[in-house]
Design a protein around this nucleic acid. Structure first.
Length: 471
RNA sequence: GGUGGAGUGGCCGAGAGGCUUAGGCAACGGCCUGCAAAGCCGUGUACACGGGUUCGAAUCCCGUCUCCACCUCCA
């Protein structure tokens, strides 16, 4: 059983071979913390969370590093607009990101380094690039330092582009650059235009890091010169990852062995994006559907397929998830629960997951096991039912959507007395209904059921007795 | 202009030459139920278009159309 992954660099599905047996180091580009995370951002977190869980299922010790880019042009611009210190904006959005991780049941990264905490590592990298002739100080006195793309013949290898075929950005600022495609490693401080707190001393003068540099520096610090997997959204392939790759390799580091990119989330046919203003914030979406349903919606399609975000599709996905959840809950009531760690993954699930994280086929396998489980459930408690339930829960746990995981139990202390009161009241009405049914007074029994339904409580009769759910 | 990706049944969404009826949602029929609900069994409508290769094409080739992502702000 080997995990196979699509590698963007080679454009093929390859067997995963770790650098160190039994270990896997994954770096995925976190966020530039300029705004609260939207559904597209959190899709990436969910995808890498599932990847991580699958590696762990295979017995790998996973080191997961996700960066936080907390100083950058956009952070400065947005914070100025909002009349906040840049670091306050960055930190507020960092916390919003953590809230989104938590609410969607993502395991936190092993470490989440911040760009501002790694200036020395970045300076060291720039020095190495200068020493090898791949970086230069701008000649216009701006204090900028650029990477010289013409000095690195492999430039463009990740996105398969030739420098001469690239369009030069309309807004490119060519000042001091040898080639308009050269990118900034260091941005000279502009006294008066930028806050004094956004500048750090460097041999080339006060300034701040350019975008891309932080990732190369932090990957090197936490995962080493060569590491297993570098990931992120497909939109980062160029320029971000191309530039990370160039500056790391040019500095003599071997860098990533596999590149894993997830596809975008679109709305109305366009990429969900902070700058397009078409974002659905995670914090808003989870007011309309349960977080576990959003997570299911985001992981059910293959990670390399575009998701056209919509509340109708989300509701439909949620209906599918509830089929799984309904089985797990009903079977657990009958068996008094099982330990999902006792479950056996079915072969179809494993084969699908091993094949480039084939979650759609893996879920199809889960649905088939659930169908078997529902048949067993009709016959009551049995060891077969327990085995089936444990298997289903274990497979759902690999995807991070086990409905009974404590991660999803939202009952807080404050709600407990309310919950208890509701339980008591509904139980009383249920007894009334049962008494009426026992004497054949179905009019009275149905009246109770109707009144409960009007209050949002569904009643159903099962072989093991009536049950109710808040629907 | 350059680099990638996509178009599948009412909807979502896999598959990548024959042996998936993928799966799910919705619909319809049956079973179960006092009636429901849930569940189980069954049913239908597919592979953007035009050619070609092949015994056989959703899958390969050629052409056409449409859409998406990236080309230095982006997950």
């Amino acid at each position: 059983m080997t995990i196979r992954l699509y590698d963007t660099a080679t454009r093929e599905v390859r067997d995963f071979v770790p650098l160190v047996d039994g270990h896997v180091g994954i770096y995925h580009c976190g966020l530039t913390v300029q705004a609260a995370p939207h559904v597209g951002h959190i899709r990436k977190e969910v995808v890498f969370d599932v990847l991580r869980r699958w590696f762990e299922h295979h017995g790998y010790a996973v080191t997961m590093i996700a960066n936080l880019t907390d100083i950058d042009d956009k952070v400065l611009i947005k914070s100025a607009e909002q009349d906040l210190p840049w670091w306050a904006l960055a930190y507020a959005n960092e916390r919003a990101l953590h809230d989104a991780y938590t609410v969607l049941g993502c395991i936190p990264p092993t470490y989440e380094p911040r760009a501002t905490g790694h200036i020395p590592e970045m300076l060291e990298l720039i020095s190495a690039l200068m020493a090898k002739g791949h970086a230069y100080v701008a000649e216009d006195g701006s204090g900028d330092v650029y990477f010289d793309v013409r000095s690195w013949p492999a430039y463009g290898e990740l996105s398969r582009q030739r420098i001469d075929d690239m369009e030069v950005a309309a807004d490119a600022d060519p000042r001091g650059k040898r080639d308009p495609r050269d990118f900034a490693l260091w941005k000279g401080f502009k006294k008066g235009e930028e806050p004094d707190s956004a500048a750090w001393p460097a041999p080339w003068g006060l300034g701040r890091p350019g975008w891309h540099l932080e990732c190369s520096a932090m990957v090197g610090k936490y995962l080493g010169d060569e590491f297993d997997i570098h990931g992120g959204g497909l939109d980062l392939r160029f320029p971000h990852h191309e530039n990370e790759l160039a500056q790391s390799r040019a500095a003599g580091r071997r860098f990533a062995r596999y590149w894993v990119h997830n596809a975008m989330v679109t709305t109305a046919g366009e990429k969900m994006s902070k700058s397009l203003g078409n974002s659905a914030l995670v914090s808003e979406v989870v007011k309309r559907v349960r977080p576990i349903e959003l997570r299911y919606y985001l992981l059910a399609p293959h990670y390399r397929s575009v998701i056209e975000f919509g509340f109708d599709a989300l509701a439909e996905a949620a209906a599918g998830f509830r089929r799984l959840e309904g089985y797990v809950v009903r079977a657990s009531e009958v068996t008094d629960g099982v330990d999902p760690r006792d479950g056996m993954l079915c072969a179809g699930f494993v084969a699908a997951m091993d094949d480039d994280l084939g979650v759609p086929a893996a879920l199809a396998a889960v649905f088939e096991v659930v169908r078997e489980g529902n048949k067993l459930l009709a016959e009551g408690d049995s060891s077969a039912l327990r085995g089936n339930l444990a298997a289903v829960r274990r497979m759902l746990a690999v995807l991070g959507i086990d409905p009974l995981s404590p991660v999803w139990s939202a009952v807080t202390r404050d709600e407990k007395p309310v919950q208890d009161a509701l339980d008591a009241l509904v139980a009383h009405l249920m007894r009334q209904r049962e008494n009426a049914r026992a004497v054949g007074d179905f009019t009275a029994a149905d009246a109770v059921r109707d009144s409960l339904r009007a209050a949002g409580i569904d009643v159903e009769d099962t072989p093991s007795g009536p049950r109710w759910t808040v629907g």
